[in-house]
């Protein structure tokens, strides 16, 4: 579409859209530094809700659980999702490919209550003790699909001539894949890991089904607090999560920019 022909209507839509998406988050962050006990009355700047947070052992336990689940499931999901992406992008038409891609795409839109319930019934049927490992397995199942889609779209966009050139120069297919393909797509893989991690850190519904008594994740904890009402501590914990995710996103985009710059300079070789 032709660029630089923005009408005032376009500009208004874009501005309102950005404000709508970001204002609530900004307000939430500002009010986490509110000195007043009432979330809605401004009482000056303060860090007291953050101090409260570090004395809330239930919240800390939930945060620790979520971090462990997030790292474990994101790592597993990245491994499995990347394998799946390679199979889809480079495997041509193998038997069961349609079913495979269907199973990878369906969880992206499947209502979480269905996924959560079905996973729980599986865990009960095989008598698995519910807690860290069941939540990790559940999150891996969901997030590996997101990783597979992200990595696969990067793989499909990659020039296959590069892999073939490596093989012409004597690389085995596996070696060509590691030396050329993986080197080029690893920013997408890293982004996939971070997406999987943030999705795991975000999920209430599937975790509620998959977890057992005594091992609540951070979102489950936040959710049960929010149901009881608005509290400044919740603003504080939400702000910390936003900060963590922002750091991850900034790192991801810097990493991919760096690798792209290096890729461009290496390209003429």
């Amino acid at each position: 579409m032709r660029a630089n022909r923005l009408s005032p209507f376009n500009i208004i839509c874009l501005t309102l859209g950005a404000a709508f998406l970001y204002l609530p988050i900004v307000i939430l962050v500002i009010y986490s530094f509110n000195a007043s006990r009432l979330v809605t009355v401004w009482g000056g700047w303060s860090l007291r809700w953050y101090q409260d947070l570090f004395n809330d052992s239930a919240m800390l336990a939930a945060a620790w659980m979520s971090l462990r689940v997030g790292v474990a499931s994101a790592t597993l999901a990245t491994l499995l999702g990347t394998l799946a992406a390679v199979a889809l992008a480079r495997g041509e038409g193998f038997r069961g490919r349609g079913a495979f891609s269907g199973m990878l795409y369906a969880p992206l839109v499947m209502p979480e209550v269905i996924t959560g319930l079905s996973l729980l019934l599986l865990f009960v049927a095989v008598n698995a003790e519910r807690g860290f490992w069941t939540v990790t397995a559940a999150h891996t199942t969901l997030t590996m699909c997101f990783v597979a889609v992200a990595v696969q779209s990067r793989l499909s966009a990659l020039d296959r001539g590069l892999e073939e050139a490596a093989m012409d120069l004597g690389c085995t297919p596996t070696r060509a894949f590691i030396a050329v393909t993986l080197t080029l797509i690893w920013p997408a893989i890293a982004a996939g890991w971070m997406l999987a991690f943030t999705l795991s850190l975000d999920d209430v519904v599937i975790a509620s089904f998959a977890t057992g008594p005594g091992s609540a994740t951070l979102p489950i904890r936040i959710y049960s607090e929010v149901r009881l009402g608005v509290k400044p501590q919740i603003n504080a914990v939400c702000t910390l999560i936003i900060a963590l995710i922002t750091v991850l996103i900034v790192t991801a985009s810097l990493v991919s920019k760096l690798s792209r710059a290096r890729g461009e300079s290496a390209a003429p070789l």
Partner: peptide, 29 residues
């Protein structure tokens, strides 16, 4: 779709683990 058939074999093998995972944790439930 171009590409050497030689490359598709290992790629297909890569499908096995995620395929089994999704069968067991997505379809079977």
């Amino acid at each position: 779709m171009s590409g050497r058939p030689i490359f598709t074999r290992p790629a297909r093998l890569a499908a096995i683990v995620p395929y089994v995972w999704m069968l067991l944790l997505f379809l079977v439930p």
